[in-house]
Each structure stands twice: as C-alpha cells, then as structure tokens.
Design a protein around this nucleic acid. Structure first.
Lengths: 189, 189
DNA sequence: GTCTATAATGAGATAGAC
DNA sequence: GTCTATCTCATTATAGAC
C-alpha cells in the first residue's frame, strides 16, 4: 500500500506538470499514463471520477508549490517591494530558461475551466485568493493600511499573472522585468 | 461570390467567439460548423490548412475588435488615468453581465498555443504589443517620457490581462475594479 | 465551387479477467 | 486490487459526387 500511495502521487505530479504546461484540454489521459508508466485501469482505480478529479488534485498540488515558492521569495527579503521584485525576477529567469511554465501559474487551467467545471473553477479561485493574501500580508507588515494592502495584493497578483502570460507569449522574461522595475511606483511606502 | 465572402466571414466570426470563450482546444470544428450553418467541405474550401488557419484569422479579428474597443475608450477621455480606468471598468461590467469573454482578451488562446503553434503565438504576440503601444501613446500625449510610457504600457497591459483572468475565475468584475482604483498610484502624472 | 459521406485517429471511460 | 482489452464517441481531415 506504500506503493499504492506512490502510484497515485506519481499520477498527480505528472498530470500537474502537463496540465499547467499544455493545458487541461490538450493533455490526454493516455499521455499522463505513458509518462507515469502505469496502465489505464490503475488511473481509474485511484481517480474514479476520471479526468476532472485528477485535475482537481493536480491543480491543488500546483497551487501548493506556487504558494510555497512565493512565500519563500517574500520571506528572503524584508522590504516588501524588493521582495516582490525578487519574486517576479525569479519567474522571468525561469521563463527565459525553460520557455514554459510549471509551478508558476494556473492562469491557463483557470481560463480553460471556469465555464465548464465549477469544481476546478473554485480550486483556481482559492489559489488566486491565497496569492493575493500573501502579498497583502507582506505589505501589512511594512505598515501599509490593511485595506490598501489587500487591494494592492489583488493588483500584484493580476500583474504577475498577466506578466507571465505576456512573457510566455513573447518568449522573453522582459515583460516581467518591466513589471518589477515599475513596482515601486505602485507601492509607495 | 458576395455570398462566398459572407460565408467565410461568418466562419471567422463564429470561430473567433468560440475560441475566445471556450479556448482553442475545447472548440471543435463541428461546433463551429453547426453555429455557422455551413457544411464541413465549405470550411476546408475557405481554409485549406484547417483549424490553425481558421484560428489565425479568428485571433486577428478578435485582436482588431479588442484594439478598437480600447482605442474608443481611451479617446473618449483626455486624462490618461481616467481613460484607462474607464476602459477597465467597462470590462468589469461586461464580465459581471456575461460571465464570459468575447472581444476582451486573447490570454486563453495565447497560453494554449504559444508552445504548439508558432503562427498563432506570433499573432497573439503582435496583439499584446499593439495594446501596450496604445496605452503608451496615450501616456506620451499627457507629457510622460517616452521610455517610461512604454514601460507603463506593458504594465497596464499585463495588469488588465491578469485582472480579466482573476475576474473570470472569481465570476466578478471586482478584481478589475480594484485595479482601476489603484491605477493612479502607478501613473503619477 | 459546394456539399455529403466517410475515413482515420485519438479521446475518455468501462468491463471483466486474473 | 491490478491491469488488459475494448467500447463509444468526438475529433480533424479528405475523397468524390454533383
């Protein structure tokens, strides 16, 4: 049964990467099975409700990793502007090096599923809200008012998601670097 | 042949809506054909290269409409901050009323295709760049330096694309309204 | 030139052997 | 409990009648 857990985790990790990079609709179960090295029956044993259930657990795993990365970046620098700049510049480097995104953004899955799967929409909604709150709390610590911090948290989350979209489309982290450069104008401490 | 043009335009208009709302991968040619009221042979007569060619013309049509909407909004108010706020608030209202996006954003198509179709990636890249330049030129008119205006154009485009993603996922235009409210902090004239 | 019929492939899902 | 074989359906694309 130790193996059972590992098989299920392997499914989720493989699916999480593929869903983020290629998208929900472009990723077939066959591809996930091939990369996991397991047969189809095994997948439906672990995920009786099929693709949507696998996607839900995949999105949640991706969300955990993204949130952890952001928290680590923000915790490494005390000044919130410098900390968020550091976080954005890290993402820019990843996009320049890899030209695709895993554990960076769930925008693609969110946009693909918000109309067709209420379960997945809610999962993405919660992750976006968590990210906004993480940025907000960093700002509150530095003395910015609670109300303004939560509004800026939303703006920062939107900027970063949009910046990732632009950078991926342009195949260059420069769009994100411009965001980072202009961040001090937005947050006047 | 007048009819011929109309049939082709009808294909592009129908496909453009569906690709934007449901995404490239989730939209089948059969659905486009059904909503266009034309047979399959007709589609491949007008678009010999199939789905990708239809998508390219659909993305370009969507881009034209999005750009026209932004230009009209920006032209209606002289102050650039108020003009861009007006544009963002318009999009928020549309999302609240329709819960889906047509002629508002190409983020979904961009994220779906940047890895799989160089043709579609470039088309999306050009539209994003056009939007950035439109915002930049509005700022230049108000006396902001050229360099800073182009950087802010990029930031505004990213913010809006990300804000649309958040608002659609949350089923509420409020995320976009928060962006609009915080915009004056970013652009200090 | 327009459209019907069909090919060829791959998808998600399931039944049932062991 | 695990896996193989298969089912059903939808997809893109094409061949060929008219």
């Amino acid at each position: 049964m130790n193996n059972k857990v590992n098989v299920k985790e392997k499914f989720i990790e493989t699916a999480s990467k593929l869903f983020q990079i290629k998208g929900y609709n472009a990723t077939g179960l066959n591809e996930i099975l091939a990369k996991s090295g397991a047969p189809k029956g095994s997948l439906y044993y672990h995920f009786p409700k099929g693709k949507e259930q696998l996607a839900l657990e995949s999105v949640n795993l991706a969300g955990q990793k993204i949130i952890t990365n952001v928290i680590n970046a923000l915790d490494s620098i005390e000044n919130p502007v410098e900390a968020i700049k550091f976080n954005i510049e890290n993402i820019a480097i990843i996009i320049d090096n890899e030209q695709k995104t895993s554990d960076i953004s769930i925008s693609l899955i969110a946009l693909e599923t918000y109309l067709t799967s209420e379960i997945l929409r809610k999962a993405c909604d919660e992750i976006f809200t968590s990210l906004e709150n993480i940025y907000a709390k960093k700002l509150i610590k530095s003395g910015i008012s609670k109300d303004k911090s939560y509004e800026l948290g939303c703006v920062i989350a939107a900027m970063i998601e949009g910046g990732i979209t632009l950078s991926l489309t342009k195949k260059s982290g420069d769009s994100l670097r411009i965001l980072a450069k202009q961040l001090p104008n937005l947050i006047n401490i």
